[in-house]
């Protein structure tokens, strides 16, 4: 009995030791990760600016292009890129001042402004309406928006899909009450769609491109005609008013980055394959049908659509305050 106990003691002591050693290793890994990028620069005189991005978005492209970060340094700013999984958590980080810049779709800033935060628009991109679509399964009998009546539709509540869906349904004299909505994040929705659990899915590239190629999904309609589906660069009022030089630079170098993306499809595709884990044909489809560009916040089309989004969400009881989107736009 004693021998067995000693054996046990040794094993468990070793396990405990391994545990501690691994934990220490974890600490070292984290430490080295946070030090990455701060080594070769004179970070003493540079203001650190945290920029939140999501995989494959325009902010990611600006990051890949590198011009903005380079020029920012000359202005005395060091850009630190932070990856987010979705727009909502990005905005939470923004409005609690943990990041200073971020890129989201058209709906999160409206929701944020309605809840009384200090979010402001500092830049916009051109429409991506042809990269957002309503998908139905290959063998679906649904062939028009009117056919969606009484069907189950999956989409992410609080994302740009909401407004798109409402506008699309409106065109067939339908409302959200005429369908069964299912709130699903992109990957859960992808599985549900694949396994035939939902009749339709409102989503955007690369998810839609993946479904088209891998599941032969049919495109019921793109967002064209229903929503401009613009993307926005955001900041907070106080910070933005103090750093208009960086905002100007973002808009200027953003144009350069977008041009670069449009002229370097193969590089973009390769990066998307690696970064987003996409199959090459999916990445190709995604890149081929998108023209990247920066837009102006004084474009009334864009402002009017954002206002419409605010009004529509309010009318559908998704936000509880009526807002004036213009209040959140930084005027140069």
């Amino acid at each position: 009995m004693k021998k067995k106990n000693t054996f046990k003691k040794i094993i468990y002591s070793l396990l405990a030791l391994a545990w501690v050693a691994t934990a220490v290793a974890g600490f070292l890994v984290l430490r080295s990760e946070s030090n990455q990028g701060s080594s070769s620069t004179d970070s003493k005189n540079l203001t650190v600016v945290n920029f939140g991005y999501q995989r494959g978005d325009e902010a990611d492209i600006i990051r890949m292009n590198g011009q903005f970060a380079k020029d920012a340094k000359k202005l005395g700013y060091k850009i630190k890129w932070t990856l987010f999984q979705d727009g909502t958590s990005l905005l939470t980080a923004l409005t609690s001042n943990h990041i200073q810049f971020g890129r989201t779709g058209n709906t999160p800033p409206v929701v944020s402004q309605a809840s009384g935060t200090n979010v402001v628009y500092v830049g916009a991109t051109t429409s991506k309406s042809e990269s957002s679509m309503i998908l139905v399964p290959e063998d679906s009998e649904i062939s028009s928006i009117a056919d969606l009546k009484g069907k189950t539709v999956a989409y992410g509540f609080g994302t740009s899909s909401t407004y798109f869906l409402i506008k699309a349904l409106q065109s067939a004299d339908l409302t959200l009450n005429d369908i069964t909505e299912t709130n699903l994040g992109q990957s859960a929705a992808a599985t549900a769609f694949q396994t035939g659990k939902v009749d339709a899915w409102v989503t955007w590239d690369p998810y839609s491109a993946a479904a088209e190629i891998q599941n032969n999904a049919k495109v019921l309609t793109t967002a064209k005609g229903y929503s401009g589906d613009y993307n926005f660069f955001l900041s907070t009022k106080k910070w933005a008013s103090k750093h208009s030089d960086l905002i100007d630079l973002l808009n200027k170098d953003g144009k350069i980055a977008m041009k670069w993306a449009n002229n370097n499809h193969s590089t973009l595709i390769k990066t998307f394959v690696k970064e987003l884990g996409l199959d090459e044909d999916v990445a190709e489809l995604q890149v081929s049908r998108r023209t990247y560009g920066m837009a102006s916040l004084s474009d009334s089309t864009i402002i009017n659509e954002q206002q419409d989004i605010a009004d529509v969400l309010y009318d559908n009881d998704m936000i509880d305050t009526k807002i004036n989107v213009k209040d959140a736009i930084i005027n140069e």
Partner: peptide, 13 residues
């Protein structure tokens, strides 16, 4: 291994 180590560190701390 890297991700296990990081998780273990956070958990233990």
């Amino acid at each position: 291994p890297k991700n296990i180590a990081v998780s273990l560190y956070r958990a233990t701390l």
